[in-house]
């Protein structure tokens, strides 16, 4: 009896070892696939023997030439533009999103349900549709081309109230009795928000700041519209996209790689540091719908 149990135990252990090995193999293969492009882009950024695409990964001659060329190009300006946009948007968008989500989570007013349904319907229109007119409006305000930075900030921030879902889901999980206890003690609604709720909302505040900060680094379509060929008003995505067009790619490919590294490193480091909050936000958002 004991012997058979032992055997079964051994069998279980063996089968677990086999399945774990298979999983390790799969995970290692996946890691290679996931890392390969990023390793390539880093290695290619140090390649100096040619500036076009080549069919090998390891450079034949190494050097900082591409980074020096970046420093001497408009890249600096694009980087600064993007950085300023990202910082300002992160600050303002967070305020707007928190106002919106806190209100919709905590207050019960007459238009609430209608407002949420209305925004759900608005969200079904492709955002791209509104670009044409927003561009013309910004142009009338003089906020395009070289002045694209304030224009982009305005548009990003102004429509950010629509993205309240994730943080509303978070506020819904904070017990209402907290608010009520403070109200009984004589706090106004505004004090409840600033003194009680905000300190508890740290994870979602960080999540909102993080996503708001990362957004502008990737925006490409609208930024291209607004800068409209003027280098001084471009962000990194628009400027570097131009480097990979067919007539530029042979001179700029390795510079693109170097630029990609410079853009990705700070954003990726920030993301990795705040990963915990991002995961909380994303998971919460998916569960609440």
């Amino acid at each position: 009896m004991n012997e058979t149990l032992e055997k079964r135990h051994m069998g279980l252990r063996a089968s677990r070892a086999i399945s774990n090995t298979i999983i390790y193999v799969i995970l290692i293969v996946m890691s290679v696939i996931w890392l390969f492009p990023f390793v390539c882009i880093v290695l290619q950024s140090f390649r100096v023997e040619s500036t076009w695409q080549v069919g090998y990964v390891i450079p034949q001659k190494w050097g900082w030439d591409n980074y020096v060329a970046l420093w001497n190009s408009d890249f600096k300006r694009w980087y600064l533009n993007t950085f300023v946009i990202a910082l300002v948007v992160a600050a303002l968008q967070t305020v707007i999103v928190l106002c919106m989500s806190y209100t919709l989570s905590r207050f019960r007013f007459k238009m609430r349900a209608g407002l949420m349904r209305f925004m759900l319907i608005l969200g079904m229109f492709p955002g791209m549709l509104t670009m044409i007119i927003l561009y013309r409006v910004l142009k009338d305000l003089g906020l395009t081309q070289a002045n694209a930075v304030p224009g982009l900030i305005l548009v990003y921030v102004a429509s950010s109230g629509m993205g309240y879902y994730v943080s509303k889901g978070f506020f819904d999980t904070l017990p209402k009795s907290l608010d009520e206890a403070a109200r009984v003690d004589g706090a106004t609604r505004a004090q409840v928000l600033t003194k009680i709720i905000l300190p508890l909302a740290k994870p979602i505040v960080i999540y909102t700041i993080l996503t708001a900060f990362m957004g502008p680094w990737g925006d490409f379509v609208f930024a291209r519209y607004v800068s409209f060929g003027t280098s001084a008003g471009m962000n990194v995505a628009v400027g570097m996209w131009n480097w990979l067009t067919p007539d530029m790619i042979n001179q700029r490919y390795t510079m693109f790689c170097a630029g990609g590294v410079i853009v990705a490193i700070p954003v990726a480091i920030l993301f990795m540091c705040l990963q915990k909050y991002y995961v909380e936000g994303v998971t919460g958002g998916a569960v609440k719908g």
């Binding site: 996946m30 890691s31 996931w34 890392l35 492009p37 990023f38 390539c40 882009i41 990362m214 680094w217 990737g218 490409f220 995505a237 570097m240 996209w241 990979l244 693109f256 790689c257 990609g260 853009v263 990705a264 954003v267 990726a268 993301f271 990795m272 990963q275 991002y278």
Partner: peptide, 17 residues
Amino acid sequence: TILVLTIAIPQFISLLY
């Protein structure tokens, strides 16, 4: 962490590359 790299790096870099 390895997998999450594709979220951390702006899409215009990873996709274009």
